[in-house]
């Protein structure tokens, strides 16, 4: 329990840092971007909105500390500001539309690549020196060298444009989100395949290679020789003894990888015009919508922190040492 509490405190601190960075960035960067932003919009916005914008970027007479407290209060109330490109709409409204789709795509692809990668890595180590063990590492290394969005471009061109196996973008065929029926779910899954496949392909490598290396370490331990000597079936040695231990580093890495995969996912979404947060980010960048960018930064960071916390909790279930209070 202490372990969980410690982790929770850490994530709260990280969230606090992210929020603070978000607050000070427009106020402290050289060249005074805040004034430029306000000047750009001074002709298109009415006075009330302009004042709100000024307040959001610290162009008021209030002392910095008061502004900061107000800002923290707003965040706690879920008020992340208003979008500039889509003016009166609060940024949360724009983001919430894409949030679900990003979560769906992210969870699917991370889970598939984690399970598949760990299985392949275990297999490679178990059949050490076999054909698969020789071929897999360089192939995966090569795929992992692709920036997410480049592989996305390639696959999009090949499967969606040339072969037309998969739809060219969007998350469903109809104008409105499909109903929660078998057909509707099928349609959503069909649109999910190409982007998810891209992410799995790029992120598979590290899981496989880490698992392989961890397995090789574990396989040379005495207790495995003992298990084999006891006459246990190879499958039982593999799963009950080797994999369970070798999986731990991968689970630790899962937490660290979520942020990276999510970053890659945002770009993949842009290529496949998948209506997730990546699309919002693209829109924010191309229309220089600072509040939207900042809110995306905060919301993505907070989601990744939550995901990390979940992984930590799972870790406790897997590693008895953590449960009893020792350091992992």
């Amino acid at each position: 329990m202490l372990y969980i509490a410690k982790r929770l405190a850490f994530y709260l601190l990280a969230a606090f840092v992210a929020i603070t960075v978000n607050f000070f960035l427009p106020r402290l960067t050289p060249g005074d971007p805040a004034s430029t932003i306000v000047a750009t919009y001074s002709t298109t916005l009415n006075e009330a909105s302009l004042n709100a914008l000024k307040a959001a970027y610290g162009l008021t007479d209030e002392p910095l500390f008061t502004q900061y407290v107000t800002y923290l209060g707003n965040i706690l109330h879920g008020d992340f500001g208003r979008s500039l490109s889509n003016f009166p709409a609060p940024v949360t409204a724009i983001i919430s539309a894409g949030f679900g789709w990003s979560i769906l795509l992210g969870l699917t692809s991370v889970l598939i690549s984690f399970v598949l990668g760990s299985a392949l890595g275990a297999l490679a180590a178990w059949r050490r020196g076999g054909l698969f063990d020789k071929l897999a590492p360089p192939v995966l290394l090569f795929l992992g060298s692709f920036p997410y969005f480049f592989l996305a471009l390639l696959l999009f061109y090949l499967f969606c444009f040339k072969l037309q196996w998969f739809p060219m973008g969007n998350a469903y065929s109809s104008v409105n989100p499909p109903p929660f029926t078998l057909n509707g779910i099928g349609d959503v899954l069909f649109h999910l395949i190409a982007p998810a496949f891209t992410i799995v392909l790029v992120s598979l490598g590290p899981w496989t290679l880490n698992m392989r290396n961890a397995m090789i370490g574990v396989l040379s331990e005495d207790y495995l020789t003992l298990a084999e000597a006891k006459g246990l079936k190879p499958r039982r040695v593999l799963f009950a003894h080797a994999v369970r231990t070798a999986l731990l580093p991968n689970v630790t890495a899962l937490g660290a990888a979520i942020g990276g995969v999510f970053s890659g996912q945002l770009l993949t979404e842009i290529v496949f015009t998948y209506p997730g947060l990546g699309y919002s980010l693209m829109r924010a960048v191309s229309s220089v919508d600072y509040p939207l960018m900042q809110a995306l930064f905060l919301i993505i960071t907070l989601s990744v922190l939550v995901a990390n916390f979940v992984v930590d909790t799972v870790y406790v279930l897997l590693d008895p040492r953590v449960r009893t209070g020792q350091e992992a």
């Binding site: 850490f10 960035l25 427009p26 660290a256 942020g259 980010l281 930064f297 990744v304």
Partner: peptide, 17 residues
């Protein structure tokens, strides 16, 4: 380490020339 890099990079890069 725990703060996802791309959104942070985007925000930082957007505010700088």
């Amino acid at each position: 380490l725990v703060i996802p890099s791309l959104p942070l990079i985007v925000v930082l890069a957007a505010f700088l020339p």
